[in-house]
């Protein structure tokens, strides 16, 4: 990874210790504060309005609190509305993320390792096929996949959402680079001489060395599956299998339909609850994003 090896030292360290002369620019800071304000505007709106009752939503200024503090009331309504279907959607999302993103990472790990460390018949064909698939946009496949799955009776089952999530060509590519960089072939040879079996070698030696790359792939897969909308929307007709994204949109559609019960306060509070876990994961593991993107930009 040519780019990574030439990675510069952290500029913030340099500027505070190495080059003390650089002046901070207040103008730059103000401009960036403006962008940060733009980014935070809708999130602030969401937090503020999740504390309002349906009635005061319509009668108050959007960026400040008003009326009774209804956050906890809203949360309990979100969790119990329609026999607690929101909890079901949350559990479905968790299932799709754990099996889908976890499985995608495992398949990418095994395949990337195979491409990096084994010479098998058809390796070149696999390589070309995967590279070609990198440029196929996932959404372009949603309708064709739906048509095939409905033909073989897979639609409206969790598998219809999970199976397509299992393939992450970019993740495979990332692991392949990572494995050829950080898993020494001599180490594998030594283990083989000791009589260790291939899968044991993978899970005891290679897996540990691949961990940082695996976490990066896992993170990208988690965000992709947590945020997935088009695929579950097209595949599922039974609300019992909806993930949060499709469910929330259904609540919103119900509120906007003539004759449907308006539950805007639940849509807003539900949206807030839906992004808290993913933002928490994101912030907690944010340093891995960078390395994934560096490798990603080396790719092209």
């Amino acid at each position: 990874m040519a780019a990574l090896s030439r990675y510069r030292k952290d500029t913030s360290v340099l500027s505070s210790v190495g080059v003390p002369k650089i002046k901070r620019s207040p103008l730059l800071f103000a401009l960036m504060l403006f962008i940060a304000g733009y980014i935070l505007l809708p999130l602030t709106w969401l937090v503020v309005n999740s504390t309002k009752t349906q009635k005061s939503l319509f009668s108050s200024f959007g960026l400040w609190f008003s009326g009774e503090f209804a956050l906890f009331d809203n949360i309990s309504k979100v969790l119990t509305y329609d026999d607690g279907v929101f909890v079901r959607w949350l559990a479905n999302t968790a299932l799709y993320v754990v099996v889908g993103a976890g499985g995608a990472t495992l398949l990418a790990a095994l395949g990337g390792y195979a491409l990096a460390k084994f010479n098998f018949p058809g390796r070149r064909g696999v390589f070309i096929l995967v590279l070609a698939s990198l440029s196929i946009p996932g959404t372009a496949l949603a309708v064709p996949t739906f048509l095939l799955f409905s033909q073989i009776g897979l639609t409206n089952t969790p598998w219809a959402v999970i199976l397509p999530s299992l393939i992450n060509p970019f993740g495979l590519y990332l692991i392949w680079i990572y494995a050829s960089e950080s898993v020494p072939t001599s180490l594998l040879e030594a283990a083989r001489l000791d009589g260790a079996r291939e899968f044991r070698i993978f899970f005891t030696i290679a897996f540990r060395l691949l961990t940082p790359g695996l976490i990066t792939v896992l993170l990208f897969s988690i965000v992709a599956t947590w945020n997935n909308y088009f695929l579950p929307l097209i595949m599922l007709s039974d609300p019992q299998w909806y993930p949060l994204t499709v469910g929330l949109n259904q609540w919103n559609a119900q509120s906007s339909t003539v004759g449907g019960e308006p539950i805007y306060n639940l849509v807003i509070t539900g949206s807030l609850l839906a992004i808290i876990p993913i933002i928490a994961i994101f912030l907690y593991l944010q340093r891995y994003w960078q390395s994934g993107l560096v490798a990603g930009s080396v790719k092209q």
């Binding site: 994204t245 949109n249 994961i281 994101f282």
Partner: peptide, 11 residues
């Protein structure tokens, strides 16, 4: 980037 398109659009 971590916010689902559905939630971003609703907000």
């Amino acid at each position: 980037y971590a916010v689902p398109a559905v939630v971003a659009t609703l907000m």
